[in-house]
Amino acid sequence: MPFFTAGDSREPELAGIWGAVCGSFYTLLVTLILSFPIGVSAAVYLEEFAPQNRWTDIIEVNINNLAAVPSIVFGLLGLAVFLNFFGLPRSVPLVGGLVLTLMTLPTIIISGRSTLKAVPPSIREASLGIGASKVQMVIHHVLPQAMPGMLTGTIIGMAQALGETAPLLMIGMVAFIVDIPAGFTDPSTVLPVQIYLWADSPERAFMEKTSAAIMVLLFFLMVMNAAAIVLRKIFEKKW
């Protein structure tokens, strides 16, 4: 069936979503590789090591504000920085992943800090009481307890990134791409943008393709949210 195996086409009967699925996969892979370690590190630093002063208060306020910024603003930032300043190519998963990383980082940092606060203080006190340093206490005791919540927040952030269209439109991922992308620097599109292109097409035959692509996107979103719930149930510890 060409719908699941082919790329985009001007002919409705030949058009498929495989190119958009591959583009979404590479884009989300870049987002995950960058956002998870940076977000977890920032959450651990702000919650466990950062001194309570004016600068950390400013950083915390800005992180909370960034979580409420419209996604198209991140697209404008990616257009100005990654494309115009650094000269990276348009419509590639690498740039899309960088833009979505900026968008999902506040969500991951906020959820990570919430899970770190939920770790019982007795864990910290017992670890320090037997002679562990603060770094050893965080790495060996606090972080393993908080990791399920951090993974959940990361998956939810990735699900949000999967459904984003506006920031990717700003970096050129709205282009008509026929070829299947084979890497992070090949021109590609993503599922939400593909749905947008088909919905905007004047040919009536693309309406069925649009509906089917929406169902595929909803399926991926439900799978990712279900994975977040399952991970939390598996690794959650009762106190």
Rank of each mutant, 00 (worst) to 15 (best):
P2W: 12
A6R: 14
G7N: 08
S9D: 03
E11N: 14
A15E: 01
G16C: 04
W18A: 04
G19C: 11
S24Q: 04
F25P: 00
T27W: 13
T27P: 06
T27M: 09
L28H: 09
V30W: 10
T31S: 12
S35N: 02
P37V: 08
V40E: 00
A42E: 05
A43V: 07
A43L: 12
V44M: 00
V44H: 07
L46S: 02
E48D: 12
F49C: 04
P51D: 08
P51V: 02
P51L: 02
N53V: 08
R54Y: 11
R54V: 08
W55N: 11
W55T: 04
T56S: 02
I58F: 14
I59F: 15
E60L: 14
E60K: 13
A68H: 01
V69F: 03
P70G: 06
S71V: 03
F74K: 14
F74P: 15
G75H: 10
G75T: 07
G78C: 03
A80C: 13
V81Q: 06
L83G: 02
N84I: 07
F85N: 11
F86N: 01
F86A: 01
G87W: 06
L88K: 12
L88V: 00
S91Q: 12
G96N: 00
G97E: 01
G97D: 00
L100M: 13
T101V: 05
T104A: 12
S111M: 07
R113Y: 05
S114E: 14
K117A: 12
A118D: 04
V119C: 01
I123F: 09
G129N: 06
K134T: 02
K134Q: 11
V135E: 10
M137F: 03
I139F: 15
H140M: 08
H141E: 04
L143C: 01
L143E: 03
Q145H: 14
Q145I: 08
P148M: 03
G149P: 00
M158R: 05
A159N: 06
G163N: 07
L169T: 11
L169H: 08
M170G: 03
M170R: 09
M170F: 14
M173Q: 12
A175H: 10
V178A: 10
D179R: 08
D179K: 06
P181Q: 03
G183T: 06
T185Q: 07
T189L: 00
V190G: 09
L191D: 01
P192I: 10
V193G: 02
I195T: 00
Y196S: 02
L197Y: 09
L197H: 07
A199V: 08
D200N: 10
T210H: 12
T210M: 04
S211Y: 06
V216I: 09
L217H: 10
L217T: 14
L217N: 05
F219H: 03
F219C: 10
F219A: 11
F220P: 02
L221N: 10
A226H: 05
A226V: 03
E236K: 15
K237G: 06
